[in-house]
Nucleic acid binder design. Sequence first.
DNA 1: CGGAATCCTACACGATACTG
DNA 2: CAGTATCGTGTAGGATTCCG
Lengths: 150, 150
Amino acid sequence: MAEVGTSKSPGSLEVTGHDPDCWDAFQWDAREDCEVRQILDRIADKWSLLVISLLERRTMRFNELRREIDGISQRMLTVTLRHLERDGLVCRTVHPEVPPRVEYCLSPLGHTLLGTIQSLVLWTEEHQMEIVRARQEFDAAQAGEDVTAL
Amino acid sequence: MAEVGTSKSPGSLEVTGHDPDCWDAFQWDAREDCEVRQILDRIADKWSLLVISLLERRTMRFNELRREIDGISQRMLTVTLRHLERDGLVCRTVHPEVPPRVEYCLSPLGHTLLGTIQSLVLWTEEHQMEIVRARQEFDAAQAGEDVTAL
DNA sequence: CGGAATCCTACACGATACTG
DNA sequence: CAGTATCGTGTAGGATTCCG
C-alpha cells in the first residue's frame, strides 16, 4: 500500500528498495516523518559510508572502487551506487567510449553530508572504548547470572 | 571465528548479534576499524533512534515505550533496549516489586550521542526536499529510459 | 508487567553466469 | 569495463505463546 512508483518491473535492480509502511504514520516523535529513518538507513547500510568516504577524496571509476573496497560484491557496489545516485548524493558520469568508462563522484549534496558523517565517526572514535567496556561488563554480568542460576 | 563470548547458549536473546567477519580487516579506509560500522548500525537500526529520542525527555517504563512507539513488537523493543543497554547507552532499572516495574533512561554516554544524532536529523530536515526531488528526477529518468527502450 | 522461546516470512546480500 | 539476471542463503524482524 502507498506505493509510489509501482514500476518495479524486472529490468532494474531493486533500487526503489524498501518503503513498506514507513513507521505507520508515527511521525518520528511528532517532529519528523519517516524520511529520517530512510536516509539514516542509507548512509548506515553496509557499504554506503565507505563509498562516500572514498569519493570524498576524488572521482573514481567503478572497478576502481571495487578494488579499493575489497570484499564488496560487484552487485552490492552497483546497488549501493544506484541508491546514492538516486538520492542525489553521488553523480554518475558515463563517457561514451569503448571500452565504456563510468565515473562516480560526490555531488554537492553529498559533500554537505560529509561533515555530519564525520562528526558521527568522531563520536564513535571518542567513545568506542567506553562502548567496548560497557559491552564487556554487560556480557560478564550476563555470564554471572548464568552461573548463579545453576 | 573470532567469537568473543561463545556463550550464545539458548536462554538469551540474540544480543551478541551479528559480528560475522567485520569487513575482513579492511580497516575502514585505513582510518577506522569496524567499530564504526557496528555502532552506526546500532543507532541506525529500525528502532534505536526512536527509543533514544523518547528517553531523551524522561525515564520510561517498558510498556510505556511500547505504547508510545506504536508499531514496534514487544520482541523488537526488548532486543533494541538490550542492545542499547549492552552498549552502555541506556540504563535499565528493575524495581523489585510486584507487579514488576522496569524503567529505562539514557545513560550519560547516551546523552553525548544525542547531540550528534540531532545534527544528523537536522541535516535530514534541511535536505530532505533535495533528496525527494533527486529521487523523483531519478525515477523519472528511469521511466524515460524504459519508454525509449520500447 | 516485562519479558523469553519458538516459529515463520521477507528481504538483504553473496556467488555465479551472461551481455553490450 | 560496467554492468544485469538469476539463484541460494542468512538473518532481521513480526506474530504468537508461555512464564515469574
